[in-house]
């Protein structure tokens, strides 16, 4: 099993619903976020091109955060989901420094926190909160090893990219372009 997400940059309107849904679902403290919207503007006026992306932890196959964690608090769950065990985390910040996507933050309670692909929801057969709430239905989530999953099908059909693949992390959030 290999969980992954595909996000359609052509459909995303940057409404930040995913951000709010995540904050609500996961009790993210005020002033913090586990996912966020990036707007890329390319070109010179009036020839401009905009790309909108909802970004989060990439649940990398070769996660630098898991590698550098001195206690094993950062680890892989079933399906390659990267999570942090709170009472094993010492808050040293190594994983925060190691993430090229800056997807982690130090929770006010001390441990390091980040997107979990809503692991508590997918265990119940639900989709992650951000995917479930998206009004343009621009996000797809599922198992890459299942050829008939939503995410496998859309990745077969559409051109896609990942963020900073040259960092060698093998990210598992795909952007449809």
């Amino acid at each position: 099993m290999r969980y992954a997400m595909a996000i359609d940059t052509k459909k995303c309107v940057g409404c930040s619903d995913c951000v709010v849904a995540c904050q609500t679902e996961n009790n993210v403290p005020i002033g913090y976020c586990r996912d966020w919207i990036v707007e890329v503007t390319d070109g010179t006026y009036p020839q401009l091109e905009i790309e909108l992306r909802s970004e989060r932890c990439n649940h990398c196959d070769n996660s630098p955060c898991v590698r550098c964690c001195p206690t094993g608090a950062s680890h892989y769950e079933k399906g390659g989901i990267v999570t942090v065990t709170h009472n094993k985390c010492i808050g040293c910040g190594a994983c925060i420094s190691s993430c090229p996507y800056d997807a982690r933050y130090s929770h006010p309670e001390g441990y390091v926190d980040k997107c979990t692909f809503c692991i508590h929801r997918i265990g119940k057969g639900l989709k992650p909160a951000c995917v479930a709430v998206c009004p343009t239905k621009c996000m797809y989530f599922g198992d890459l090893e299942d050829p008939n999953s939503e995410v496998s099908l859309v990745l077969k059909k559409r051109k896609h990219k990942t963020l900073i693949p040259e960092a060698g992390t093998k990210p598992q959030v795909y952007y449809l372009i």
Binding site: G14, S16, V19, G31, Y32, C33, W36, I37, V38, E39, V40, T41, D42, G43, T44, G93, I96, S97, D102, R104, Y105, S106
Partner: peptide, 23 residues
């Protein structure tokens, strides 16, 4: 010209605008 901005207001303390986790 390429400009990239976070529009959802991500301002995680010690992470944005640039990392400052180690003092």
């Amino acid at each position: 010209m390429r400009e990239e901005i976070i529009t959802s207001g991500r301002l995680n303390p010690h992470i944005d605008p640039h990392l400052e986790i180690w003092h």
